[in-house]
């Protein structure tokens, strides 16, 4: 199957400064791809270039089997990090206007606007109010609505939840979860929990380069740490020595009352520790195998 978007050696320079450095990636249909990276990594520049707002210095962007670097605006929807609207318009007017610009007919645009206002949870009453009176969360949801008014195949969102309070953030994440059934979403974030929550694939960007990519599961497997966390309803110090004596254990350390066990072989270590604990009736309260969180993984990749 043809990839939805294929990016090859995309580079964006401002003068001598390289913001995006020869990045290549591709992804298919109905995916939710997170572009993650620290502030200043080049996420916004990458997304703006993909959206056609910036011209690449080098490299190509190809949408499905269209010619490379051609105008792809008809198939994509885009929401900038800080969307700005014609604040003198009402929400409904702005959506209809966006629909008309995306070449929908008058009736299509009006119908789709009403439909989307429901989807993004803007009430009938609020939709007839001027956008200048909208809260940040409402503006963000209206921004998503205008981006999907023409049913794009690819929705590009730049830090869609960064500026929202927890409630607004939850609303937008739920909305993204719904939208991912209908279209591919590419969104940037530096909040790794959000990426972990909704994305299927990850692109890690640092200093303008893609330093890691793949599905969340694959990356977790790749960067999995073999650390067992053990908490005992007692001081862990007295157990540390016994665990250290096990052959499958590399070393141990105590942090905030819990014992963190680095293993030589996780499978054997798990068996040995649990057998020992059962035999000696240790009052265990927590026994967990710490999977690499996206954050750990990110820190490791970036630091490398």
């Amino acid at each position: 199957m043809v990839a939805l978007l294929t990016v090859e050696k995309l580079t964006k320079k401002y003068g001598t400064k390289t913001i995006v450095d020869q990045i290549s990636f591709k992804f298919g249909h109905h995916k939710c791809v997170a572009l993650i990276g620290p502030n200043g990594a080049g996420k916004t520049t990458t997304l703006r270039t993909l959206a056609g707002l910036l011209r690449p210095t080098e490299g190509t962007i190809q949408f499905e089997s269209q010619a490379k670097n051609q105008d792809i605006r008809s198939w994509i929807g885009y929401l900038p990090q800080y969307p700005s609207f014609h604040s003198w318009m009402t929400g409904k007017e702005f959506l209809t206007y966006s629909g008309r610009l995306a070449k929908l007919t008058k009736i299509e645009a009006a119908t789709r606007a009403i439909e989307l206002l429901k989807v993004v949870g803007i009430s009938e009453e609020a939709s007839n109010e001027r956008i200048s009176r909208y809260s940040g969360g409402m503006k963000q949801r209206l921004g998503i609505a205008q981006a999907i008014i023409h049913k794009p195949k690819l929705l590009i969102l730049d830090e869609p939840v960064a500026s929202l309070d927890p409630i607004g953030r939850r609303e937008v994440l739920v909305l993204m979860e719904q939208l991912k059934q209908e279209m591919t979403i590419l969104f940037s974030t530096h909040i790794l929990n959000d990426a972990e929550e909704v994305s299927d694939e990850l692109l890690l960007l640092n200093k303008g380069k893609i330093i890691e990519s793949g599905s969340l599961q694959d990356l977790q497997k790749k960067y999995q740490t073999t650390v067992i966390k053990l908490e005992i309803d007692d001081s862990v110090d007295i157990y540390q020595e016994k665990i250290n004596a096990l052959e499958s254990v590399a070393n141990t350390k105590i942090e905030r009352g819990a014992l963190f066990i680095s293993t030589v072989d996780l499978k054997i270590a798990r068996e040995e520790i649990l057998t020992l604990a059962a035999k000696e009736h240790w009052p265990i309260t927590t026994f967990s195998i710490n999977r690499a969180s996206l954050e750990d993984m990110f820190m490791r990749v970036v630091n490398n």
């Binding site: 105008d71 605006r73 885009y78 969307p83 700005s84 014609h86 966006s98 610009l101 995306a102």
Partner: peptide, 13 residues
């Protein structure tokens, strides 16, 4: 300057 043009010109205008 305000950024509205981003939302307009990202449509096939």
């Amino acid at each position: 300057k305000s950024g509205v043009s981003e939302l307009i010109l990202v449509k096939p205008v």
